[in-house]
């Protein structure tokens, strides 16, 4: 559906180490392996059977969030079709829910990315403990985030939209040590 209405996501000020990622389609798929197999055929990315791992292909990705819960991302297409997936999965018991507007994505990158995130995130972000491709729900101070490392020095962070101001403000305050303002 095309609308002339203005689309307005919570604002994140871009800096050397932080930027807001563009609008994306976000879907939560829950159900068993059969549903995922059917979905993978049309989504074009398979689903990691290993916990806390993301798989990606082009602009699309699937992120393991729980044993039966995956986040489907399409970073280029803001209207990737739910109907196509629903049709492909058919009668296999599952839940597919569009949450595109529930959260926004920011990227934290650069040589201080780990240290900035560790200003509020209690996980071990050393490459040996949090390798490229690892993703998980976790916390950043008092906010819940999904953290996905897609490069050695870059993290994709999913934040619930109303927490954007808090998370971005927090990270900016932490980063002042590394990027004096």
């Amino acid at each position: 559906m095309v609308s002339s209405m203005a689309r307005l996501a919570p604002l994140v000020t871009t800096s050397e180490w932080m930027r807001a990622l563009p609008f994306a389609t976000r879907l939560i798929l829950q159900g068993d392996a059969a549903a995922r197999t059917a979905a993978a055929a049309v989504w074009g990315v398979s689903f990691s059977q290993i916990a806390c791992r993301a798989l990606s292909q082009g602009s699309r990705a699937t992120l393991w969030l729980g044993p039966e819960e995956y986040l489907l991302l399409d970073m280029s297409d803001e209207s990737a079709s739910v109907a196509t997936l629903e049709h492909a999965i058919g009668n296999i018991p599952h839940a597919l829910v569009d949450i595109s507007h529930r959260q926004i994505a920011i990227e934290i990158s650069g040589p201080f990315a780990e240290r900035i995130l560790n200003g509020g995130c209690p996980l071990d972000l050393d490459l040996s403990a949090f390798p490229i491709g690892m993703c998980t729900r976790t916390v950043l101070a008092k906010a819940e985030i999904v953290l996905w490392r897609n490069r050695a020095d870059a993290f994709h962070v999913e934040v619930w939209r109303s927490f954007t101001g808090y998370v971005a403000g927090l990270l900016r305050e932490i980063a002042r040590e590394y990027y004096p303002v």
Binding site: A51, C52, G66, P67, P122, L123, T136, R137, T138, V139
Partner: peptide
């Protein structure tokens, strides 16, 4: 803060639980 071994995700800090 305790470390809790989630049967799905492995050893994680208590604050997540």
């Amino acid at each position: 803060m305790l470390i809790i071994d989630c049967p799905y995700c492995g050893r994680r800090p208590e604050i997540e639980f």
